[in-house]
Amino acid sequence: MSKVLQRTDKQGDIVDRREQIRQIINQIENESEDLKVVAFMEHTTPPETVKPKVIKFQQVIKLLRVLAEDNPIEKGVAKVMFYSPSTGRSRGLTPTMMPGFQYIKAGMQTKPHSHNMASVYLVVKGKGYSIVDGKKLEWEEGDVFVVPANMVHYHVNTSKEDAVLFDVTDSGLLENLGILEFREE
């Protein structure tokens, strides 16, 4: 449930007080196409406080396993992400970051894709590699690796057990800016 930032326009409090200001603003706006003058920045209501929380891994892994069993989009793969409704339109766990878990069954891989968010991964379980911008990054349990923004990448589980990757992205920040992009290759 994301909400739109509530804005209160205070420009009239300044502009409407003096005819000279209104005339100058009108002149500036009329001399250029598609231009408006903001003489006083609007007020915005402060966001709700993001509350501390714990995400229980045992519940998450149970969900990931069920999702991966019958995933029509990516066979043997599941992804869950978390956000706080109190972050409003950013849809992050904090206003700038969103964490998630990826589950890759033994011998499976994710589809190649790219996005303009950067991702930092922690390998919770398993062994494999990721292809990031054509470069092979081998990983195993406990390793941390980074996928910079806008690089085509995918993850391959080479172990005999299911792999679990935990990642944190800056998608909340990009969502707030209105520029979040995701592409399958």
Rank of each mutant, 00 (worst) to 15 (best):
D133N: 02
T169A: 07
L67I: 14
H155V: 11
F82W: 04
L174R: 01
P85H: 10
M108R: 03
A163C: 14
A106N: 02
H115G: 03
T94R: 01
K136R: 12
L67D: 06
L122N: 05
H155I: 11
L64D: 05
G88V: 10
E74D: 08
M81C: 08
P99K: 01
Y154M: 07
D133W: 10
M81K: 01
P72I: 15
G92N: 03
S119M: 09
V80C: 07
T158Y: 12
M151F: 09
S171I: 15
Y154H: 12
S86C: 06
F166L: 14
M117E: 02
V66Q: 05
G128V: 14
G142F: 14
D162G: 05
S90F: 12
T96P: 00
I104G: 01
K136W: 15
E140W: 15
P72E: 03
R91A: 08
Q59S: 11
Q58M: 07
V168H: 00
Y103R: 06
N71I: 15
L137V: 14
S119C: 08
V168M: 00
K136Q: 15
Y83L: 01
E140V: 13
S119P: 04
N71M: 10
L137C: 05
S114C: 07
L174S: 00
Y121K: 00
K62W: 15
T87N: 03
Y129S: 07
H115K: 02
P148C: 09
A78D: 04
K160R: 10
T94L: 00
I104W: 03
K79Y: 12
K127H: 10
V123S: 02
S119Y: 11
V60N: 07
M108L: 12
Y154T: 10
D133P: 05
K75S: 05
G128A: 09
E140C: 09
Q58A: 08
E138P: 03
Y154R: 11
A68M: 06
M97H: 10
K62M: 15
L173G: 00
A78P: 04
P85C: 06
F145S: 05
H113N: 12
S114A: 06
W139Q: 07
V60W: 08
N71E: 07
S84K: 03
K62L: 12
F82S: 06
Y103F: 08
M151N: 11
D170E: 07
G92H: 08
G100T: 00
K125Y: 15
R65E: 08
K105S: 11
P95L: 10
D167M: 13
V132S: 07
K125C: 08
A118C: 03
G107S: 01
H115V: 11
V66S: 06
V132N: 08
D70K: 09
L93Q: 03
L63K: 13
V164N: 07
L64T: 13
V147I: 14
E74T: 13
F82Y: 04
